[in-house]
Design a protein around this nucleic acid. Structure first.
Length: 357
DNA sequence: AAGAGAAACAACCGCCGGGGT
DNA sequence: AACCCCGGCGGTTGTTTCTCT
């Protein structure tokens, strides 16, 4: 049972504000400040409750409110902050000047949540999802990459971006699958496709390194007990080298992780990826920053938080394919790319799906 | 062009905590 | 300690706008 409206609140107007009401409220606050919100409506000549006035002012009329589309940086920041603070919209809003908690909350619920889900990231935990939805999404992403490559053979920049998305999607899927493995596999399962796993070793980049370090190495014993073995010739991949990168938009990828303290948080940055963790978390787990960086908890962001940005920023390049093509590792020339769509689907439907089940 | 459904946004609701009495 | 008031917060709903068929 909720609180019944007080005597004063009966008969007050609700719903959307009219321009006249906005004007009255704005004029009054400019002249007198808001003072007691409860007393304000009468003084300002408004047939509204104080709470409604307060919300209208703080969420819409306040002069320092920034309106309009959220920038990519703001988007990234919201995601990072949310991974640390959860649904603490007011706290998140303090880091975004001019944005209200309500606006951020709405933006999260209508845009960012979906975006993360599409990227295979659980918007609550900010970790890769382990459900099967990704399995159904992956073929579409891969198909998109293939179709794009076929349709736009001249567009190396775009192809790189699409390739990168497909590659990242695959890595994420594998990430999920490996999590399933590491969470306790059943010996009745068929062994995983070790060619795929070993492929990670043959294509050195940050994401693959991460998967290897996080899952393959720590779980090699587990895999052995399950009757699987890693390719004995595999070696720890060489350090990530940006000059071979598939992620042309990520600068300084081989830079050391930068750490900065902000409020009670640390921000871990690697190229355009960032992740935040609270001091409390480190304290609770008796870790310092170095411990955290080398711990299984540290997961570099696998993808840009703004896939649309990459897609929207596609620019048809000058007819000069020499520079881009020489450094690209396009989809069809990778070991992954050697799998055609039928192969991918077979793996997904026949083997990995069964593995997950 | 029109209708349906989805998406986006503004506003409301109920609860909670802090401060005052 | 108990109560009340106020402001703030997060979840949810209602309305408007957009997109698709």
């Amino acid at each position: 049972m909720g609180r019944s409206p007080s005597r004063d609140e009966i008969g007050l107007k609700k719903g959307p504000w009219t321009p006249e009401e906005d004007q009255k409220l704005t004029d009054y606050i400019h002249k007198n400040g808001h003072g007691s919100w409860r007393a304000l409506p009468k003084l300002a000549g408004l047939n509204r409750c104080g709470k409604s006035c307060r919300l209208r002012w703080s969420n819409y009329l306040r002069p320092d409110i920034k309106r309009g589309k959220f920038s990519d940086d703001e988007e990234q920041l919201i995601i990072s902050l949310h991974s640390v603070l959860g649904n603490k919209w007011s706290q998140i809003a303090t880091h975004l000047p001019g944005r209200t908690d309500n606006e951020i909350k709405n933006y999260w619920n209508t845009h960012l949540k979906k975006k993360l889900l599409q990227m295979g990231i659980d918007p609550v935990t900010h970790r890769p999802r382990t459900d099967l939805n990704l399995l159904s999404n992956l073929p579409n992403l891969l198909a998109a990459a293939n179709i794009f490559n076929l349709m736009n053979p001249w567009d190396n920049v775009s192809r790189l971006q699409v390739d990168a998305q497909a590659q990242v999607a695959k890595v994420q899927l594998l990430n999920n699958l490996l999590q399933v493995i590491s969470n306790g596999g059943s010996s009745s399962l068929q062994p995983p496709n070790m060619e795929l796993l070993n492929h990670l070793r043959s294509v050195p980049n940050r994401d693959n390194n991460y998967l290897i370090n996080q899952y393959l190495e720590p779980n090699s014993q587990l895999l052995n007990t399950l009757g699987y073995s890693l390719n004995p010739s595999s070696q720890t991949p060489p350090p990530y080298n940006f000059s071979n990168s598939k992620y042309p938009n990520v600068p300084n990828e081989n830079e050391n992780v930068a750490v900065e303290e902000a409020d009670n948080c640390y921000r871990f940055e690697q190229g355009s990826s960032s992740r935040m963790v609270s001091n409390n978390y480190l304290n609770d787990n008796n870790m310092n920053v170095q411990d955290y960086l080398s711990s299984p908890e540290y997961i570099p962001a696998l993808v840009s938080a703004s896939p649309e940005r990459n897609m929207n920023n596609i620019i048809k390049p000058e007819i000069n394919t020499t520079t881009n093509s020489s450094t690209s590792t396009t989809f069809e020339t990778t070991a992954w790319g050697e799998l055609n769509m039928d192969d991918e689907e077979n793996i997904l439907s026949d083997y990995w799906t069964e593995l997950l089940e």
